[in-house]
């Protein structure tokens, strides 16, 4: 067994390319501003990510360029944007995985703040409020005492769904959401699936039906699977949505149960 990080040490895919990065620029705050593509040339460096490239542009070419990065490690979900037309996390996209010409645009569907920066946070908060997306427990828990038990497998299953980082890629990739702005998207449906799985949330299917049992919820989903195919966390959204669809149908057919 030998160490093989040498690929990194060598600086894979760095053969001195000159990247041409076109950014869709627009500042809605500025009445003079019109949407337009601005192209920047950047010398590619080894292991360069779009995070590095965009900061390079801002530091050395265009200080007014707006974009959002926080963790720059693929965990916080701030930097979703359209990379050559597809939603993805810019911070963990290696430029070596793209061609020399790269087009970046802000995530559609969300309110544009400026250039590549969009207001996903505002939408996510609204969605959480609309879907009452928190644990609805019954009564107080005495935290000095042993915690309620949970099957280890169940905890893992819940975590699996909880891995969503609310980056907004699923909505930007969703034809349904693009046409129907009230749609809660995979992020909302997944969240409800996660809460439903959790025994600490005491709501019944009839309660969940009230939240997602309409055409802005699970029955609005047209199964275009853009969400499934772009999710940076590889969440199995397709299965969760299908599952919720069956459960909600059941709740509709057998309302008493």
């Amino acid at each position: 067994m030998t160490g093989n990080g040498e690929a990194v040490a060598r600086g894979e895919g760095a053969a001195g390319r000159r990247l041409r990065i076109s950014v869709l620029r627009y500042n809605p705050q500025d009445p003079q501003s019109r949407p337009h593509l601005q192209t920047f040339e950047v010398e590619e460096a080894p292991s360069m990510t779009l995070f590095v490239a965009l900061n390079d542009i801002r530091d050395h070419q265009e200080p007014s360029l707006q974009f959002d990065f926080v963790c720059r490690a693929g965990i916080c979900g701030s930097c979703a944007m359209l990379i050559n037309g597809r939603p993805g996390l810019a911070c963990r996209t290696l430029t070596s995985s793209l061609g020399e010409r790269i087009t970046l645009a802000p995530l559609p569907f969300f309110e544009l703040i400026g250039d590549l920066s969009v207001n996903t946070g505002k939408w996510m908060r609204g969605m959480s409020e609309r879907l009452e997306a928190w644990i609805h427990a019954s009564g107080e828990v005495d935290i000095a005492r042993l915690e309620e038990r949970m099957e280890p497998e169940l905890a893992e299953q819940i975590y699996e769904l909880e891995r969503c980082i609310e980056c907004g890629c699923c909505l930007a990739a969703c034809g349904t959401a693009r046409m129907r702005e009230g749609f809660v998207g995979a992020v909302g449906l997944n969240k409800i699936a996660r809460l439903r799985l959790d025994p600490r949330d005491r709501r019944s299917d009839a309660d969940y039906y009230d939240l997602i049992g309409d055409d802005n919820g699970v029955f609005g989903c047209m199964t275009l699977l853009g969400c499934q195919d772009v999710c940076p966390k590889n969440l199995d959204l397709q299965t969760q949505i299908a599952y919720m669809r069956r459960k909600m149908l059941r709740a509709a057919i057998l309302p008493a149960s």
Binding site: W134, E148, A155, Y159, R200
Partner: peptide, 9 residues
């Protein structure tokens, strides 16, 4: 835990 963190068990 009561607020929903799925702690490993």
């Amino acid at each position: 835990a009561a607020w929903g963190v799925p702690w490993s068990r």
